[in-house]
């Protein structure tokens, strides 16, 4: 059984309605979600679902239209700016365009709520800043200028800024949006690790379902015209919530693999025989070109043999059409003969 402190609720959202304009209808209402200490939560939803609006409301940039956002036992609306700065820190999509600002200087701005009138850092502040820079893996970049670093490194610096703000709760708005795949994975792993080790609650919005499914402790699903769903990734897949939130014409969510498939109407079935890695990649190539690889018999047959080198034989109604050395050739042959 878990200790009580581990499941302490950091953020509790009750009957929240969000939107930009009080006069107009709320973008979303009846939002009831929570984040626990040490929990890594991903907010997912299609474009235009209102993820940003929710993030901005939880960060305090927008006022809730109705309902309550509670940090522990205090409502967000009742906090002064300075108190709020010690409760929740943010990493936003705003691109920094400052020249001559070093990582150290940027991260130390995270100490703003704690420093005095002139913003002078104490030794304790400096130690915290240096530790945070180490923690996000920018140890070698302490005095580098941020405008000369990659997007991923800059994102890490912003995360370090959020860390030294020493808030129990961190909100990140699409922190992986502009990053390449390795950098995305790195950032997600880093955030997950930070939530575990420092017992902070971390909420981030993202488009990367794959990665969210693999890393999140909890997922919030948001879509226009649907009530918000909250749960662990696996439950949301099993309950078909993912399917219902993201599927549309031409796109379907495969509950077996937990990924999206491109769907192009009626596919011609192609029997695929063989095994191993070559089999797998031929199946992918077929899928990509709009065929449906099947195991049962059909008019078309591809035999994959892997004796040292790979060879692919294409049959139409049991008649050998061609034997190919690589998948590209095979795909050309099959397209020509259709």
């Amino acid at each position: 059984m878990q200790k009580k402190t581990d499941t302490e609720v950091l953020l509790n959202v009750v009957d929240l309605a969000v939107g930009y304009d009080r006069k107009e209808k709320a973008l979303h209402q009846d939002i009831n979600v929570s984040v626990n200490k040490g929990e890594f939560v991903c907010l997912l939803g299609p474009n235009g679902a209102g993820k940003s609006t929710l993030i901005k409301t939880l960060s305090g940039f927008l006022k809730p239209l109705s309902g309550d956002i509670c940090f522990g036992d205090i409502r967000l609306q009742d906090l002064t700016e300075r108190q709020r700065a010690k409760r929740v820190s943010v990493v936003l999509t705003d691109k920094l365009q400052v020249q001559n600002l070093t990582v150290f200087e940027l991260v130390s701005l995270g100490r703003t709520p704690y420093t005095g009138y002139f913003g002078k850092l104490t030794d304790h502040d400096k130690a915290l800043v240096l530790r945070a820079i180490q923690e996000v893996g920018l140890g070698g970049f302490t005095h580098h200028y941020i405008d000369k670093m990659s997007d991923g490194e800059r994102q890490k610096a912003m995360i370090a800024k959020a860390l030294v703000q020493e808030t129990p709760f961190i909100i990140l708005d699409e922190p992986t949006a502009f990053l390449d795949l390795p950098a995305k994975i790195e950032i997600m792993q880093l955030l997950r690790k930070l939530s575990r080790e420092s017992k902070r609650g971390i909420l981030l919005s993202t488009h990367d379902l794959d990665m969210a499914l693999q890393t999140a402790d909890k997922i919030w699903l948001l879509a226009q015209g649907k009530s918000m769903q909250q749960g662990i990734p696996e439950d949301l897949v099993l309950s078909n919530d993912f399917k219902s939130f993201f599927e549309r014409d031409g796109v379907y969510f495969d509950n077996n693999t937990g990924s999206f498939k491109y769907h192009s109407g009626n596919r011609i079935e192609v029997t695929l025989k063989g095994s191993g890695i070559a089999h797998e990649w031929v199946a992918r190539a077929l899928y990509r070109l709009g065929y449906k690889p099947v195991a049962k018999n059909s008019d078309w047959l591809i035999e994959v043999s892997s004796n040292g080198s790979h060879s692919f034989s294409l049959y139409k109604q049991s008649k050998l059409l061609a034997t190919c050395e690589n998948i590209q050739e095979l795909m050309q042959k099959i397209t020509e003969s259709m």
Partner: peptide
């Protein structure tokens, strides 16, 4: 320097 949103979040 960080922009108004970050500044507001920093109190």
């Amino acid at each position: 320097l960080l922009g108004e949103n970050y500044a507001a979040n920093l109190g």
